[in-house]
Design a protein around this nucleic acid. Structure first.
Length: 523
DNA sequence: AAGGGTGACAACCGCACGAAC
DNA sequence: GGTTCGTGCGGTTGTCACCCT
């Protein structure tokens, strides 16, 4: 039992949660009437009957009048929710079907956390139901270190977007203004870095999922679609029901249609998991940045978004824990073919729970402290530094870079406010961009990537490259991945660079990651 | 078998926003 | 321009079922 402020009646009320169904025995006098004592908690069948009767007579809407006219001791909002989520005659109860699940995933990939809109696409399902399903799924995937979006959905969405992009109307279904064509103007998401919050509470636990979702939201210019599009990897629970799941993509899904980064990312994670001696999955990226020789790459789409975004050349994220294209068991029949099992979840757990590297007292937002997100986002700046032949980042560099980032003219994500929103790419950009300024200064990572990546990763990377990583070498170096639109030029959406040049791109991708892998790009 | 831990789910709250008045 | 209402969504919490010890 907990005491909460009841916004409906503005008083503290005792909150007793019960089963979701109506509480028969609780249909006493306290539920009805008593305008000053609005009831909370589970609905009784009597209340349901009253509400249903009222709606039948008066129709939906004007919910605050329900209490006044029906004597129901519920605030209008509660009535609306009860009706919408439980009493509506067209509700479809029961578990989501596979088709519905797939549809939800697709819709989410397209529109993000637009639960109501998603519900509109799924007759009989409520936004709350979908939201709960999705959140549960996210948690499950995070725990398992699996991608939020299956590759086929990513591809479908990307293809769908591609067409829009090509016509300059990368437009969300419901968004009628703004589009990525504007983003293509090379504007960078406009972010108010004053609002970027450092999360001192971020504990060392180098995974995106460790970062409070609220922090993600705060970091994002549009909180409505922040973390869900990330590519978080949650420390697997010690006891994971999905432990018996199969991971089919590793063998079957790694194809030219599957972004290599997910594969690599998960693979990396898995390998790291196998090497539990690693103190931190995050550290390597921090020190290997100077091994990169790219331009202002990374960030943006490249970072935190599920399959697609993580597929972007974001070696850091990849190196860290971005999960691969693995699916939990219920998805097998849909997307994956069972294949290589993951390393034990315990090993992953060990990795994640391993003691942090020495945090720098002067660096409260060090990736070492704040985890994967910072590390991932930090990567672009490291690359900038590297690109500037400043393999030895200095505090001055930090200041300089921060100023640069802070003064970037950027374009906000266009969701309701502005236009298209693509979960597979946008939020990552926001978060990445937002965090760049605070994470870029964290350059003193002591470990080298080789220490954790091991040759296995090299092999993996050396043999497979993302088909969408296209373009010429110089293009690669010229891409500014801190810009949400950068990847459009990379063929991220199939636009810009000719996608037919995939084969030619492999060397590019390899080159980009060779330093990170301790390989000779030309070797 | 019992108790504790955990995950999945349901339901609600708080806040923000827009439309209507 | 202010208020009311409805809506959307993130976040939180309670309940239940399952699993493990």
């Amino acid at each position: 039992m907990s005491t909460m402020t009841n916004k409906c009646d503005g008083r503290k009320v005792s909150k007793v949660r019960r089963s979701s169904s109506s509480v028969e025995e609780d249909s006493g006098e306290s539920n009805i009437g008593g305008e000053g004592h609005l009831k909370k908690g589970p609905w009784t069948s009597a209340e349901d009957a009253i509400l249903v009767d009222y709606v039948k007579k008066n129709g939906e809407g004007n919910w605050n009048a329900v209490q006044r006219h029906s004597g129901l001791a519920r605030c209008g909002k509660s009535c609306r929710l009860r009706w919408a989520n439980h009493l509506r005659p067209d509700l479809r109860k029961g578990a989501f079907t596979e088709e519905e699940e797939r549809r939800i995933i697709e819709l989410h990939a397209k529109m993000g956390n637009k639960w109501a809109r998603m519900a509109a696409e799924l007759p009989g399902r409520t936004d709350n139901e979908i939201k709960n399903y999705w959140n549960t799924r996210i948690k499950r995937m995070q725990r398992a270190g699996l991608p939020i979006y299956p590759p086929d959905v990513c591809l479908r969405v990307m293809h769908g977007n591609q067409e829009s992009v090509n016509v300059g109307t990368l437009r969300d279904e419901a968004n009628q203004h703004d589009d990525l064509s504007q983003t293509d103007t090379l504007d960078i998401p406009e972010l108010d870095f004053k609002l970027v919050k450092v999360c001192p509470g971020l504990s060392y636990g180098p995974s995106i999922c460790d970062i409070p979702e609220s922090s993600m939201v705060e970091m994002s210019s549009d909180s409505s679609h922040g973390y869900n599009h990330m590519f978080p990897v949650m420390p697997p629970s010690k006891r994971l029901r999905e432990s018996d799941m199969q991971y089919g993509y590793l063998d079957s899904c790694i194809s030219d249609t599957v972004p290599i980064f997910e594969q690599y990312g998960d693979y990396t994670c898995d390998k790291i998991s196998d090497h539990t001696q690693l103190s931190s999955p995050c550290d390597p990226i921090l020190n290997t940045s100077d091994q990169f020789h790219g331009d202002d790459t990374y960030g943006s789409h490249a970072t935190l978004n599920g399959n697609t975004s993580s597929s972007v050349p974001l070696p850091g994220a990849m190196k860290l824990e971005l999960p691969s294209l693995q699916y939990f068991e219920t998805q097998h029949g849909i997307w994956g073919t069972p294949a290589s099992p993951l390393p034990s979840l315990e090993s992953v757990d060990t990795m994640i729970q391993s003691p942090p590297a020495k945090p720098s007292p002067s660096d409260p937002v060090s990736p070492e402290r704040s985890g994967l997100l910072e590390a991932i986002i930090y990567q672009p700046k490291q690359l900038q530094v590297a690109n500037n032949n400043s393999l030895q980042a200095t505090p001055n560099d930090c200041v300089r870079k921060e100023v640069k980032i802070s003064t970037m003219k950027s374009k906000p994500e266009c969701d309701e406010q502005g236009g298209p929103y693509f979960p597979l790419d946008q939020s990552a950009a926001s978060v990445a961009t937002n965090y760049t300024s605070i994470s870029m200064c964290l350059v003193d990572a002591p470990q080298s990537v080789e220490t954790i990546q091991d040759h296995n990763i090299k092999q993996e990377l050396g043999t497979q490259y993302p088909a969408y990583v296209s373009g010429k070498k110089e293009n690669w170096n010229q891409i500014d991945f801190t810009r949400p639109d950068a990847l459009l030029d990379l063929g991220w959406y199939g636009s810009g660079i000719d996608c037919d040049d995939y084969d030619g791109d492999r060397f590019l991708f390899k080159d980009a990651f060779s330093p990170f892998l301790g390989q000779d790009p030309d070797g």
